[in-house]
Design a protein around this nucleic acid. Structure first.
Lengths: 215, 215
DNA sequence: ACTTGAATACTTGTATACTAGCATCCAAAA
DNA sequence: TTTTGGATGCTAGTATACAAGTATTCAAGT
């Protein structure tokens, strides 16, 4: 139960359904989901470790506002990890991987404009495929957790601008590079792909100031 | 309380005081520390996420045996992160950092042979200093958590061989490289430093088979 | 001798009751 | 009008009680 609730709340926060700064409480959630406080508490602890909420003892629990610094920090770490991964898989020259990736891209192309949830799920699936194919399960677990902060920003992005076709194009270019066997080219394209958020982040932070912490 | 107990059990597992495979239970720990099951339970959840114990519902909780694959995975990820960090700090040319590092090394030289606890604490302090100086708090949190699996091996290592002076020498060489401003040299030395475990790991696994999972 | 099955003693998971601390609000006093 | 102090209602932290499931043990029956 606690694990289930953790995933539910996690996606709700990432999607912005639980707005930053909003107060939530163990009792409130236990009533809403008709469970006791204990599983809620355990879900809260996990969310706190992921920096998605802040538990203040004897005071209350709040959905954390997005920190630009933390997003940049997460992005940087993710870049380090994923660049290494994409280099690894490129060296492997695995045809079956290429096929899987191309199938994912085909699915991404079919996503209807505005369906940001489906796209982000397929996007995550692509990055996950790369990591697991490199045999880096631990690296993927870490990436998955730090990605949350970035995804919060991306969900805001999709609200007013949807460059989905461009992102799919970047994915295709990356896969092309992997197939070519040029690890540095693949890494370079992955890098610029992962740096896209750098240009959008300041705009988002300015457009949705109430979602971000002042710093 | 839960957080305190988490640290206590964490270090106990890393030091091998709680032996791999050993059954522990929430009730047992609650009695030993004179607290209720709930804080114990929360500590267990965290330890489970760090892969230090395994909680099997309705069956029991066990100290996880060391997995060679997981140690190698952790080492690899750590190398990626720390190489990036050491490159960053080298580019910064910060004299105060060099001073701090040299002080740490001086303390490491004073550690008495056999006092592996003190040495590992100072070792961690050095790596932590580098990460935080690069402004990579998130990267350090990740490193800290994945380091646990490696430290379990290192504590076994110290039981029969103590190459502490050699390790201190490696640290000194790394700091020299950082001071010289040659980022690639610093990274190269850090890399070989972090790869030391690769040679000792097979020996340890063979010497202490009961500490390792069969795979 | 072997197998089967029920009782028992564990385990973790969940629900509830109680404790301690913080914040707000409102009234009373200066 | 301003300040102070206490009552009240909230919060999370902890302790305890109960539920559900597993492994073991031991005895009874074949």
């Amino acid at each position: 139960m606690g694990a289930q609730l953790h995933r539910i709340l996690r996606t709700a926060i990432i999607r912005g359904e639980l707005v930053p700064g909003q107060a939530i409480s163990e009792i409130e959630m236990s009533k809403r989901f008709s469970i006791s406080r204990q599983p809620v508490r355990e879900a809260f602890i996990k969310l706190g470790e992921e920096r998605l909420i802040e538990v203040m003892p004897q005071r209350g629990t709040y959905v954390r506002k997005i920190s630009v610094k933390e997003v940049l920090d997460a992005r940087h770490l993710r870049e380090i990890i994923e660049l290494s991964i994409v280099r690894e898989v490129t060296e492997k020259h695995d045809a079956s991987l290429i096929k899987t990736l191309r199938q994912l891209i085909a699915q991404q192309q079919k996503v209807k404009p505005g369906d940001s949830r489906s796209f982000l799920a397929l996007d995550e699936e692509l990055h996950r495929t790369l990591a697991l194919h490199a045999g880096r399960e631990l690296a993927w677990r870490v990436t998955e957790s730090i990605k949350a902060q970035m995804d919060r920003v991306r969900f805001l992005t999709f609200d007013f601008a949807t460059p989905m076709p461009q992102l799919v194009g970047e994915h295709a270019k990356i896969v092309d590079a992997i197939e070519s066997g040029d690890a540095e080219l693949a890494a370079q394209r992955m890098q610029s792909h992962l740096r896209a958020i750098l240009t959008s982040l300041p705009l988002i932070a300015e457009r949705y100031p109430e979602h971000f912490v002042d710093e």
